[in-house]
Amino acid sequence: MHIAITDYVLEVVQNAFEANSTETRVVLQETAEAFAVTVTDNGKGMSEEVMKRVLDPFSTEEGKHPHRKVGLGLSFLNQATELAGGELTLRSEVGVGTTVRFTFDPASIDTPPLGDVVSTFMTLLAHPKAGSLVIERKTETDGYALDRKELIGVLGDLEMSGNLHLLKEYIASQEAALS
């Protein structure tokens, strides 16, 4: 069950990792008019035909999840954005990558809460398949960027719990200082 925008972010980025993306960029942009998330990857991409089926809840890529016949991530996201006066757009090219962009209208009562940004970013940055992941968070006047390669250069192995704790502290300080 998805209850927060960060849950959708986690899901879309995980799709990118599963498509063998090595360079992924996530941008969360908050303005008075819209809350927009853009996830760009250089994974294997989708053909026109796959793009048509991707929003169908009863379709999933063959062999991606053994024993599972449904692929609910993007279809739930599509439903949620429609409900909250936003939209979901997909752009993809086989062998080049995919861009998923979704927006929510902050004024709509059906817009989900933002969720736990710090834990979500930490989870994504520590993912073993994350490659060179860059996460940008922007408000109208402020923002910060997290570059996984740069952070590994400072902290070392992100799978170590002590380093992960420091990473969380770092992200929390960036988030708390946002105006």
Binding site: E169, S173, Q174
Partner: peptide, 25 residues
């Protein structure tokens, strides 16, 4: 909370290095 810079993060890690090493197997 004041915004931490990467340099401050590096310093914090160095400070905690000993504690981190105790956890390393």
């Amino acid at each position: 909370m004041a915004k931490m810079t990467l340099e401050e993060l590096r310093k914090l890690r160095e400070e905690k290095q000993e504690a981190l090493e105790k956890r390393s197997i």
